[in-house]
Design a protein around this nucleic acid. Structure first.
Length: 507
RNA sequence: CGGGCUGUAGCUCAGCUUGGCUAGAGCGCUGCGUUCGGGACGCAGAGGCCGGAGGUUCAAAUCCUCUCAGCCCGACCA
């Protein structure tokens, strides 16, 4: 008799959260480490989730007038030098291409050929503001060309020293929107519109509650005038920046000569924005909903929303049960959820039933249906929900089909409600430095328990705050956009302040 | 780039201190059988230049030197 662990994932979240995260990624078959340091292989199940994220976001981008395009992977090094802050921000983490040919080396291996050294090194894009800006400069000559609303789905490389699956990898997949506008007001509006779209997507589709806010100067995107983000709270009480939208002012326009003739015939600089979300969202999804039995997927993003597990003992039963399952699948697929046909999968692999069931539990499929000869005879299915756990309940087949969309909607809502409740439980208002320090200091420093959360505090940015945050490993997440004006005192300096910011430990 | 650690089967590791039998275990994989509304069990089997190079020795996974790779803790970050 093998040991029967109570949970499918070991260790549990409370035992060792970072290790739990790695185990969920593995158990759910989302991704694995690759032969390239810091880079991951995204496996079919994980990639299917990303594809769903892409599709849902892409629809929103198109609905707001954006078009997709594609720009080069390589950026001439000189381009990066044009915007001073931008260089400083990214120079330390760039992969650089210096040669275009290999030759045999004396040891029987290969080496870059000295004769094939590039005149100017190419940078593998860490982000594309510069190359896209240079392109936009050519596209733009008249106010009639504006606005330019472009999005690109791409991979980027940032040579991070410390990587974690989905949350921070050397190469990652993302989308970057880049727009050009005639006026400041219009560019600001675009920046805010895209932030709203990200927030709506996160909450509606990912069932992940987020706080919209503006980044402090210290956390701003290199080269931006203002950076906005959506901030989510993970189950280990650490914050995750889940999406950013930048108002770039005229900084990049001036650096790259993005200008046009206005209606008065004057040559003026344009106003630009950029915004993006990445495969990091998958990490956020995992850490928002999953439990000690593995991944829990919100129905709107699940590659399969319903999995049917046929149960039979012999070929006769197999034929009968599979036929029933196929018809069930066909009826379920005819139902619609979130404006799409319900996604159904029959798992008829030659595996033991229990093992199969647990695989789907760990992969986070919202609804599992077990169908055996007894169900076939009675016209029933045995249905189990992933988000609430527990065993399957017998349900009349047609009733289940008729109610599947509603049920998926309930699962989706339940996940959001649960995540929101969890966030509220770790959100506090703090008015003294002493209290702040206590909130962010684990009781046991050697084996830190889960601690911290979102702390709303009055603050005035400056060296005192920087130093204190650094020593506590806390970061300023954002100043919430829906926060209210309120007279207060900065907990770091005692200076007067009018708004609270959110502080948290973060990924 | 500093400080700690690890490279042995597909995966997780034992063996190294004190050199010596045919290099091991668990999981996974393959086959057969018994089970089976369920993460089962039994039997049989496949799978290793012990990270790489050099050295010491009658003899090296084990000792020495060099080298490569990876992990953890800092500094940096979507």
């Amino acid at each position: 008799m093998a040991k029967k662990p109570k949970n499918a994932i070991s260790p549990t979240r409370s035992e060792n959260y970072p290790e739990w995260y790695q185990q969920v990624v593995k158990a759910a078959d989302l991704a694995e480490t690759s032969d390239v340091r810091g880079c991951m292989v995204i496996k079919p199940w994980g990639y299917a989730i990303w594809e769903n994220i892409q599709r849902k976001l892409d629809t929103r981008f198109k609905a707001t007038g954006h078009e997709n395009a594609y720009f080069p992977l390589f950026i001439p090094m000189s381009f990066l030098e044009k915007e001073a802050e931008h260089v400083e921000g990214f120079a330390k983490e760039c992969a650089v291409v210096t040669h275009h040919r290999l030759e045999p080396d004396p040891d029987g291996g290969l080496r870059p050929a000295a004769s094939a050294k590039l005149e100017e090194p190419l940078i593998v894009r860490p982000t594309s503001e510069t190359i896209i800006g240079a392109t936009f400069a050519r596209w733009l000559s008249s106010y009639r060309d504006l606005p330019i609303l472009i999005n690109q789905w791409a991979n980027v490389v940032r040579w991070e020293l410390r990587t974690r699956m989905f949350l921070r990898t050397t190469e990652f997949l993302w989308q970057e929107g880049h727009t050009v506008h005639a006026t400041e007001a219009e560019a600001v509006e675009e920046t805010r519109q895209m932030l709203d779209i990200y927030a709506e997507f996160a909450e509606d589709t990912m069932a992940m509650p987020v706080i919209k806010g503006e980044k402090t100067a210290g956390e701003r995107f290199p080269g931006a005038v203002a950076t906005y983000s959506i901030e989510a709270m993970m189950q280990d009480r650490k914050a995750l920046q889940a999406g950013t939208s930048h108002f770039l002012g005229q900084n990049f326009a001036k650096a790259q000569e993005i200008k046009f003739q206005d209606q008065a015939g004057q040559e003026v600089f344009a106003w630009t924005t950029s915004w993006g979300v990445s495969t990091r969202l998958v990490g956020g999804l995992i850490m928002t909903h999953s439990d000690d039995d593995g991944l829990v997927l919100p129905p709107k993003l699940a590659p399969a929303q319903v999995v049917i597990l046929p149960i039979y003992r012999n070929d006769d039963e197999r034929t009968e049960v599979l036929e029933y399952c196929e018809s069930l699948k066909s009826d379920l697929t005819a139902e619609r959820f979130d404006d799409e046909p319900v996604r159904v999968r029959i798992d008829d692999r030659d595996l033991r039933g229990g093992e199969k069931k647990w695989q789907w539990v760990k992969r986070g499929v919202p609804l599992r249906l077990e169908v055996g000869p007894r169900d076939v005879a009675a016209g029933y299915v045995s249905a189990a929900r992933r988000d609430v756990g527990g065993k399957g309940e017998p349900v009349e087949r047609n009733a289940f089909v008729a109610g599947v969309a509603k049920l998926l909607g309930e699962c989706q809502q339940a996940l959001f409600d649960r995540a929101l409740k969890a966030r509220e439980e770790v959100t506090v208002s703090i008015d003294s430095l002493e209290e702040f320090e206590k909130y962010f200091t684990p009781k046991d420093a050697d084996k830190p328990e889960l601690h911290g959360g979102f702390a709303h505090c009055h603050f005035v940015e400056g060296p005192e705050m920087e130093a204190k945050l650094k020593s506590l490993k806390v970061t300023a997440r954002c100043v919430p956009l829906d926060g209210e004006e309120e007279a207060g005192t900065c907990i770091f300096t005692g200076q007067p302040s009018t708004r609270r910011g959110i502080f948290a430990k973060a990924y």
